[in-house]
Amino acid sequence: MLTDRHRIPKLSLLVAALVALCVWYAWQAQHHSVGYARCMSDPAAYDGHTVELALWRVESVEPEGYHIGGPTRSVPVLGPSAGLEPGWTISVVGRFDARQEALVEQWREVHHSRRHKAALGLLGLLSFVGYAGYHFRWRDGRLVLRA
């Protein structure tokens, strides 16, 4: 497996397998996991279903609840909104209410340090790029460690 025999075909196969895995994963996430979108596709069938939304941004706050936004949609959540502010990152577990087409909050966590974590993520990425640039070289078609 790790020899130079048929190196390019082996590398191509590995990359193809990885791409296939990622595509499959995305398809599963969209068609088999039960999120708000799935509940809204058939509200009666999913009434009472528990939905977990991790790391969504508070878009707006209303007296009876709030709206949170994710990568592809906005979700209304019914629950205590005192102290919440737009722009905050929160995770919510809620029960889908078909009549109100909203989630009824059961539990939530506010991620106050999310922005700091994102900044550390960027710093870590840049640091690693510099570190890798120092320690790795491309020589004669191979990746080698700096002597």
Partner: peptide
């Protein structure tokens, strides 16, 4: 496309 947003998990 949603595919581009949700495909990164396996990595």
């Amino acid at each position: 496309p949603s595919l581009l947003l949700y495909c990164w998990g396996p990595l």
